[in-house]
């Protein structure tokens, strides 16, 4: 049995291992209900340029009403300069030094740009930000980000909004093994609660998702399902799964069974 340590992000501890997004819900009211049903303690918020503090304040107020820790993101940024500027704006608007750093390298599948991500991470860490970089599942990239000083890394499961689940479990599990002290969160690409469960079973500390809940037929029920899934996945990780075997092993002892009932 492994130790069940709480999720820790830059020194702050959280019980819930589900980070939830605030976009794409059918209405703000449903968003609030879904967030509540997810039992998440951290909500991500995207700041578009048009949402100056006064301009976006109604929606921002709805987010504040949830009482959750806010994790602003730099969604939609394509260059280091854009991302750094937006991070500065986020720090001012949301009064937090946390930033989910998202730097898009490919417009169509929204794949993060690893090169620009390293540069922006270095700048923001040096300015005192607590950076949560959204990255691909490349081990060397993750090692470089950790070497820069990131306590938390957020490799993707699959491209944003695809709902494909963990496309490369081998890569993700290698990152987990090689960076045992880093908080790892699978961010993006999950579609089903079983995907979240799989990430947690693998030893990932949490998952971050938005579309899988917001785009479900009933976002509130799906939020509840994801909450159960991360709890199940974490419990399974702590409990340590039995080793996989290639040959069947009976779960009922066969000793004492008459020999003519035993096959071969």
């Amino acid at each position: 049995m492994r130790d069940d340590k709480p999720l820790t992000i830059y020194g702050q501890k959280f019980e819930s291992r589900l980070l939830i997004g605030s976009a794409l819900y059918p209405s703000p009211h449903i968003m609030q209900e879904a967030i509540s049903a997810s039992q998440s303690q951290i909500v991500t918020v995207s700041l578009r340029r048009q949402n100056s503090v006064s301009a976006g304040d109604d929606f921002w107020q709805l987010i504040k009403d949830t009482g959750l820790k806010v994790l602003p993101n730099t969604a939609g940024c394509h260059s280091v300069k854009e991302a750094v500027t937006l991070a500065h704006m986020c720090r001012e608007v949301f009064a937090t030094d946390w930033i989910k750093l998202e730097l898009i390298g490919d417009e169509y599948n929204l794949q993060p740009d690893p090169v620009a991500l390293l540069e922006a991470t270095q700048i923001l860490l040096s300015e005192g930000f607590k950076v949560l970089p959204y990255c691909t599942d490349d081990l060397v990239l993750c090692q470089r980000l950790a070497a820069l000083g990131c306590d938390v890394l957020m490799p993707w499961g699959a491209p944003i909004g695809t709902g494909k689940g963990l496309l490369n479990p081998y890569n993700l599990s290698m990152i987990r093994q090689r960076l045992p002290d880093i908080t790892l969160i699978v961010d993006a690409g999950l579609g089903l609660p079983s995907h979240a469960c799989q990430a947690l079973e693998m030893g990932y500390d949490a998952v971050l998702l938005n579309s899988a809940i917001a785009g479900a037929g009933c976002p509130v029920t799906m939020a509840r399902a994801f909450n159960y899934a991360v709890q199940a996945g974490r419990a399974a990780y702590v409990a340590q799964a039995m080793p996989e075997k290639d040959v069947a092993a009976p779960s009922t002892p066969t000793m004492g069974m008459p020999f003519w009932h035993q096959s071969n």
Partner: peptide, 13 residues
């Protein structure tokens, strides 16, 4: 469709 009270001109994006 953007959650914002800004009615300023359309953006380039």
């Amino acid at each position: 469709e953007i959650e914002s009270q800004d009615s300023g001109s359309i953006t380039v994006r």
